[in-house]
Design a protein around this nucleic acid. Structure first.
Lengths: 203, 203
DNA sequence: CTTGACAACCGAACAGTGTTCGGATATAAT
DNA sequence: ATTATATCCGAACACTGTTCGGTTGTCAAG
């Protein structure tokens, strides 16, 4: 697919495209998603505002592209969890990776999950999203198979609750408790362990 | 405090102030927080753009005011939970009220919790925020006192986890699963019950 | 009732934004 | 060397938030 037989033209285009994305990402990191300005991006990379429109149809497409980049980074956190861990440890580390991404990339995290038009509709992004979702489903399923979570719960409900819990912890930490010097990562781990343990026995 | 002995002048001012807030809230509901335009607000209530600045110092103060209104509405959901319920039921219904607010006021919910500068710094808002926070703390404490949650957990950790869970469920439902016809409120209730039950026994 | 103080409001302007379009320039293929 | 096309820009358009000076209207004191 992604062969390296690119013409010099295409290589240049890819590079300036990356430069635009870099400038946009940096600008979002320092001024928030709201403070992104196409004209300022153009200024930083010595382009004219109109020039950017060769690479991105409009502003929304640009932020969608950096959202996609951030989401890919996010998926690498999740996919980096060793698959050979015991089921419950795997699920726990999956959640911790989720939260760790948020803590280590707060701007990216907020951008990804607070951008209202997440319907990127690009099949590529949809694929990555499905991938991360599937990782979670498989983590739950493994716990169910191993009997470490009671099978009296519906798998979809468990996925929902697990996702909600780690997402909520992440959101709270980065956007409400960021001025707190408490080690919320440790607290998250403790409470996630409790969550898993509590689901071991049937209702 | 809020005596009704207002001069006609003040009464008019309060009314137009409310008109501005109404128009802004409606506009946010239909075009999102990003699509709020002071000029459009002025247009809708037959004012000049400059006229609004008699009532709000700038755009941020206006959205802060509608955020404050939304947060007050939110706190009414939480404070409306009957205090005479058994400890665990009370905590559960508190969480359900949280989620119900999100489901029934998705725009308000997203606006409140996605607006980055939530540091409203107005003592009044801070008071309401403290109020809702305190309701949760008391709900947890009651469960601890009644032995329905093992006291081997730290109260602050429990507050964090409970808050995170219901907040995450709310966020997921309104901004990622809204196009789903599944009854996520029922699922939330089931999984919150499981969460409470799981914390009954010590680790 | 008149006068003065002040609140309420507006018109016009300024600086900034996203976006479009016609034209200029560079690059590559013929 | 000549096309064709990919890049890029200047200028304009329609917006936006915000400020400022001036014009009203309102209310209380003389």
């Amino acid at each position: 697919m992604t062969e390296e037989d690119l013409t010099p033209r295409e290589r240049r285009a890819a590079r300036t495209r990356e430069a635009i994305l870099d400038a946009a990402r940096e600008m979002i990191s320092e001024r928030g998603a709201h403070g992104l300005s196409l004209r300022e991006v153009a200024r930083r990379i010595d382009y004219s505002p109109a020039g950017l429109y060769e690479y991105f149809g409009n502003k929304d497409e640009l932020v969608a592209a950096v959202v996609a980049q951030g989401f890919e980074r996010f998926s690498r956190y999740l996919l980096g969890v060793p698959i050979d861990l015991p089921p419950r440890d795997y699920l726990l580390e999956l959640g911790m990776a989720y939260i760790r991404f948020a803590v280590e990339n707060p701007q990216h995290f907020m951008l990804i999950f607070n951008t209202p038009d997440l319907r990127s509709s690009k099949p590529d992004d949809e694929f990555i999203a499905e991938g991360t979702h599937h990782v979670l489903i498989k983590g739950i399923q493994r716990c169910l198979d191993a009997g470490e979570i009671s099978n009296s719960y519906q798998r979809e409900d468990l996925v929902f609750a697990a996702w909600a819990t780690v997402h909520g912890m992440s959101t709270l930490i980065v956007s409400h408790l960021s001025h707190d010097d408490h080690d919320w990562l440790a607290t998250s781990r403790v409470m996630l362990e409790a969550w898993c343990r509590g689901l071991e026995q049937p209702p």
